[in-house]
Design a protein around this nucleic acid. Structure first.
Lengths: 147, 147
DNA sequence: TTGAATGCAAAACATTTGCATATAC
DNA sequence: GTATATGCAAATGTTTTGCATTCAA
């Protein structure tokens, strides 16, 4: 019995598809497998190329649509930020950002941990730190009340 | 004497322009002012609209070019990630990402602080946390050696 | 059978680039 | 005067959408 971990995940994916009334398609399974098996945090086009041999006629837009559904099923997530556009800041006092998924607002939050992260990365020799970007996604107090 | 803080910053901007052999233009000053004065982390189009009345003929691409130069001068920075494309991950074990600015590689790094951030945000009532995204930008050990 | 997923083509959107003109120095 | 920045237009690159067809349930 090989790939137990992957097989477990694939069963989980099938289960979640069923719960969400989504169909289990070859494309969804192959795209998920490709992400699971890669350590390179692939983008849509990379995934498209890596599954072409298994799903010859697959289209790039199917990859995009599949990524969105896998994301909604909480089977994959994006490594970059959720923001569609670049947004800018001139405030260099160390702070983090709270991105509200409801109102799309970005709030500055001040945490004690940004410097800690920098220290920890340096100390562990993981790389030379230029800056630390802590993004917290969630629902802000204003939106919490609303339905 | 009003706007001392802003004026200081504008002087700093002029100084850095001179050092970098960049010209001090009305567009650069106005775009910087608009970012400095806004708490909303504006995007390029928002900035474009907010300076139109002061620089009537300004073009959107000038805003983009100016944002790039302000970024290079370390007068502003982007709130979202540096990644041009969305990249995906299927690994839900709590981890952070080290983005190397040289090789463009994304490395998983395991820090003790992700959970701390979540706890701190919840405790302070800043919002309901869905997930914490810690991105560290820098230069990875592999690239550190190279020129 | 039937509604959801796919493939194809075209559109949408943010961002970038080429080039002639305007402008800071 | 000269090199850089700008404005305009067109291009680029990623992602999304409309629609007819295919396919999982």
């Amino acid at each position: 019995m090989q790939n137990t971990e992957l097989n477990k995940k694939l069963e989980e994916l099938k289960l979640r598809c069923k719960k969400a009334n989504l169909r289990v398609t070859k494309q969804r399974l192959e795209i998920y497998k490709a992400i699971f098996e890669s350590k390179a945090h692939p983008d849509a086009e990379t995934l498209y190329n890596s599954i072409k041999n298994k799903v010859p006629n697959v289209a790039l837009d199917t990859v995009y649509r599949t990524l969105t559904s896998l994301e909604n099923l909480n089977m994959v997530f994006r490594v970059d930020s959720l923001l569609a556009k670049a947004r800018f800041d001139a405030d260099y006092t160390p702070h983090s950002h709270f991105l509200c998924t409801k109102c799309n607002e970005i709030y500055d939050i001040f945490l004690i941990t940004a410097q800690d992260v920098k220290n920890e990365v340096q100390k562990k020799g993981l790389g030379e730190v230029v800056d630390v970007n802590i993004q917290v996604r969630g629902i802000c107090p204003k939106c919490s009340g609303k339905n």
